[in-house]
Design a protein around this nucleic acid. Structure first.
Lengths: 257, 257
DNA sequence: ACCTGAACACCGTTCAAGT
DNA sequence: ACCTGAACACCGTTCAAGT
């Protein structure tokens, strides 16, 4: 029972912060956040804890580095290939993050904790920049850049979090058991809610069962994009119909600083 | 040094799950997630760990209960007073959650983790139901209920998470130090980013400094609401301008199950 | 039924000592 | 400069024993 488990052979190449972060991501992917311990890490890297602490200050920094690495990889997929419309670019960036949370179910919760720990870190600007460039390209007036980009980022983070939740739970149901079974379970659970307290949720339970996560996510993106486009001055479209929305007077002030 | 610390006098009333959850929330509020330990809990409640385990299965369940209690309280603020428009109701619900994450900075990250652990739990349906009823009231066609409500919920969760991040960090800067100092720090940090890598973020750094979180949050809500309203069949508004968006053919399929 | 509190396994972190 | 590994403080959880 004391034989080598996993790949704990003998280490040939030297230790490095990079290799440690890489191993941390692998551990997180395979056994979740509780699976990332210094014991498991030392075993996998065939060292002692002191060696790891030489390259990394503590576990928090290690988690942050793992999160940052995964986010950076997700945003770097397309160097500068596709020329598509700004809308398509937004969808591509968003989908990249969405798929990253699918591959790494621990990512979403970790993003939330990391942002609350260190919001001036590198991961928030990374996402913000990728989305913001497209907002600018959409022709949104500068006074609304921050609002529009924030809204996009918030939607993406929220939706990615929810998706990670579903992916993780679907896996927890057992290997091989697919998303279909999981969605079926949620749908059934929602159908079983109290009719007095949850009429709407019950009414919608059926749509849960056979929706496609990705389609759903992109539909939400389009919804936000529609709202963002409405921030732009009307080009040649219908100038009417706008004042029907409630008191838009002081809500979106023009940039005047 | 062995004198009673805090309120560890003698317990008069009996222990209960409710009292334990309440104490847990207080500990989380005052000292963050790492402050919630069974030792601190037993001291505050003047018992032993075994007593707590009689009422609560484990720490995970305790965290879930604390999260659920706080979310339920946030959504229950207005029993049925305000008659306002659906839009105003959405803003009220969203603001309730937003303020809850301000009061309880641990909430957002905890929500993410809990949803990923147990998405068929009670907290997701609670939020979903509150928002969904207003979506229905907005006249959104039934086939889009799930998409629209999900988008709202994702935005709210993402934005609340970001806000909790900011609130928490602002507090960490020191008691008394306000949001202004914190925003100034973030703004300065963004202005110091690499001009080649982060042109957009740098350009927007100024808007970070003097934005109002709540205004920003509500502006995002309105943006999503605009997108949602566009899902409704045009009442008497301009029927043109819609086919300009890309392949909307199969994107929002009508309900046909 | 409800509570006590010692005990256990495990975890993050440190540090004197090695090369 | 980089690594080893024993040791420490702390944490979640258990459980025989009490009332």
């Amino acid at each position: 029972m004391a034989t080598r488990t996993g790949r704990s052979q003998r280490r040939t190449d030297a230790l490095s912060r990079e290799r440690i972060v890489e191993a941390a991501v692998e551990l997180l992917d395979t056994s979740g956040e509780s699976g990332l311990t210094f014991r498991a890490l030392t075993e996998r890297l065939a060292t002692g804890p002191g060696a790891i602490y030489w390259h990394v200050a503590n576990k928090t920094e290690l988690l942050d580095a793992a999160t940052d690495a995964v986010v950076a990889a997700a945003l770097a997929v397309r160097p500068s290939e596709s020329p598509g419309s700004p809308q398509d670019e937004v969808r591509a960036v968003a989908l990249g993050l969405f798929e990253a949370t699918e591959e790494h179910p621990w990512l979403a919760a970790q993003l939330a904790t990391q942002l609350s720990r260190n919001p001036s870190g590198t991961v928030a600007p990374r996402i913000f920049e990728s989305l913001g460039r497209q907002v600018r390209a959409l022709g949104v007036p500068e006074g609304h850049w921050f609002t529009a980009t924030s809204a996009l980022m918030h939607y993406v983070l929220g939706a990615a979090g929810q998706n990670a939740a579903n992916t993780g739970s679907a896996r927890a149901l057992g290997p091989g058991t697919g998303r279909a079974e999981f969605l079926d379970a949620v749908s059934t659970a929602w159908e079983g809610l109290d009719p007095g307290d949850y009429p709407f949720t019950r009414a919608v339970a059926g749509q849960v069962r056979d929706h496609d996560d990705r389609e759903q996510f992109l539909a939400g993106i389009d919804l936000v994009l529609t709202g963002i486009t409405a921030l732009s001055p009307p080009r040649e479209a219908s100038p009417a119909e706008k004042p029907s929305r409630r008191g838009g007077a002081g809500r979106y002030p023009p940039p005047d600083e």
